[in-house]
Simulated scan of single mutants.
Amino acid sequence: MSDLKRTPLYDLHVSLGAKMVPFAGYEMPVQYGLGVMKEHLHCRAAAGLFDVSHMGQVILRSEDPEVAKAALETLIPQDVLGLAENRQRYGFFTNDAGGIEDDLMFANRGDHLFFVVNAACKDADVARMRAALEPDVTVKLLENRALLALQGPKAEAVLAEHHPMVAEMRFMDVATVPIAGAECWVSRSGYTGEDGYEISVPVASATDLAKALLAHEDVEAIGLGARDSLRLEAGLCLYGHDIDATTSPVEGGLTWGMQKVRRAGGDRAGGFPGADRIMRELTEGVSRKRVGLSPEGRAPMREGTPLFASADGDTQIGTVTSGGFGPTVGAPVAMGYVDAAHAENGTALFGEVRGKRLPVSVAKLPFVAAGFKR
């Protein structure tokens, strides 16, 4: 643990009784006194506060903002040029083989683009952007801002007490809002499937902001354990597990994140790394697909569990990439990849757990419907 970095909220986590664990090079809270189950259910019912300051916050800027947008389209298969000011999109970096190097959020702030990237990938992401975009585009990794996520059905009411305009924001809107005396960059987004906000705040004000939000009776501090079970129930991918450098967006079921203009036949189709493979798969299909999985009984099927089409067959047809108990569902939930022939919802499969073949069925994603404010 001595070699790990700490977020600006480390002392607050310790004071709240958090259990700290290594994650993506940081000491992070996996749970607090409530425990993972109650933290998960509290976020679904009220509002939870997450420290996501380990993630990378990056600004792209050029003399002509359109230059930065056009340049970015050479690295990601999303419509950057068409993104309206003060709006945000989900995206991903692809490699020459059509795999996903990282998934991310990016926002058009008028004179610059603002990125949030995964903690374990942020150095590689910045290096990738600098190599491809500089000197025409300046790429700056911010070290002076923390990042909080306030998630849950009561998040709007809680944050609106600090500034009423946040209630007017739609899903994926972004705005600069003064909260608890700090200039905050707020997006109406998150990674729990619930309505909520991500709040970028200057490091010097991060602890005061967190305490101000936690002072509300509807807000509890939530750790990585519940963050993982929430995103799994919401059918959201965890980079390095459900998607990686070998997984294409088509295999991963992420083609909804590729706007029509960047697909085959679109005005700005292709032009990003791996476009040949991705365009071909969009047309011809793939041999494997990411699916939801519902194990029978109470025993979770964890990451790495091999999947088979029958209880006694020798041929493995898939693998679990994320799995655990879904507190809202009240049963085990999982995601994984299976051969396309076995990917239809309701298909009966078997997962091999400790040498035993246990029944599991392909399930529709998400397990819990999203609560985003459209």
Score class of each variant (00 low, 15 high):
T7P: 06
L16M: 04
K19M: 12
V21N: 06
P22E: 02
F23W: 07
A24H: 01
G25Q: 01
P29G: 12
Q31G: 15
Y32H: 12
G33T: 10
L34N: 10
G35M: 11
E39R: 06
H42N: 09
R44V: 11
A47V: 05
H54W: 05
G56R: 03
I59F: 04
L60K: 00
R61I: 02
S62H: 01
E63Y: 11
E63P: 00
D64C: 07
P65V: 02
E66Y: 08
V67W: 02
A70D: 04
A70V: 00
R89K: 03
R89V: 00
Y90I: 01
T94D: 01
T94Y: 02
D96M: 06
L104Q: 03
A107C: 02
G110C: 11
D111L: 13
F114G: 01
F115V: 13
V117A: 13
K122P: 15
K122F: 08
L133Y: 04
L133S: 01
E134F: 10
P135E: 07
L142K: 02
L147V: 06
L148S: 00
Q151D: 09
Q151W: 04
G152H: 09
P153L: 08
L159T: 03
H162I: 03
H162A: 03
P164L: 02
R170H: 13
R170P: 11
M172F: 09
M172K: 12
V174A: 05
V177C: 05
P178V: 02
A180N: 01
A182K: 04
C184W: 02
S189P: 08
G190L: 04
E194W: 04
G196P: 13
I199V: 09
P202L: 11
P202A: 12
D208P: 01
L209E: 02
L209N: 03
K211H: 01
A215H: 01
I222S: 04
L232S: 03
E233S: 09
G235V: 02
Y239N: 09
Y239I: 09
Y239F: 15
G240P: 15
D242M: 10
D242L: 10
I243Y: 12
T247C: 06
T247W: 04
S248D: 09
L254K: 05
T255S: 10
Q259R: 08
K260V: 08
V261Q: 04
V261A: 06
G266L: 01
D267I: 05
F272Q: 07
T283Q: 10
E284L: 11
E284M: 10
K289A: 15
L293S: 13
L293T: 07
S294K: 14
S294A: 15
P295N: 12
E296P: 12
A299L: 14
E303F: 13
E303P: 15
T305M: 12
F308L: 11
A309S: 14
S310H: 13
D312A: 15
T315R: 14
Q316V: 13
I317D: 15
T321V: 12
G324R: 11
G324F: 13
F325G: 09
F325V: 10
G326F: 13
V329L: 14
A334Y: 09
A334P: 15
H342G: 11
H342P: 14
H342C: 12
A348T: 08
E352W: 03
G355F: 06
G355V: 12
K356D: 15
